[in-house]
Write a protein that binds this DNA or RNA. Structure first.
Length: 103
DNA sequence: AGTATGACACGAC
DNA sequence: AGTCGTGCCATAC
């Protein structure tokens, strides 16, 4: 299982209404410093709906990438809010929606 | 095999 | 608190 697959798997484990940071996924993947690598995996993200990359945010809770050029953030943003994540502008309250991975 | 690029994170100012 | 610079890992060419 390559890192990418782990990242996708972990991302899939993110419950609705919650978000995980790249560093978090990287850490769960076994590479606490592979935050960038996580983002790289999301970029290739072959399974967009299967891998809720929109649930993956930066360490500050700010949404990255998936809205940059595509600007479809509004769509993802709305989706996140539908799941229970209130997106403040381009950021979410990690203290409230940060995936604790208790499971 | 090496170089260049990238959806990040942390430290310091 | 916000902004700037550097470091880490993986992927793609």
């Amino acid at each position: 299982m390559n890192f990418r697959e782990r990242i996708y798997f972990l991302t899939r484990q993110i419950p609705p209404g919650k978000v995980a940071t790249y560093g978090q996924l990287a850490r769960l993947a076994g590479k606490p410093g592979a935050a960038r690598a996580v983002g790289a995996c999301m970029r290739v993200n072959p399974d967009a709906p299967t891998t809720p990359c929109h649930r993956v945010v930066a360490a500050d809770g700010s949404l990255h990438g998936f809205f940059g050029k595509h600007r479809l953030l509004d769509r993802k943003q709305a989706l996140l809010q539908t799941e229970g994540v209130v997106v403040c502008g381009d950021r979410v309250d990690l203290k409230q929606y940060l995936w604790e991975n208790d499971v």
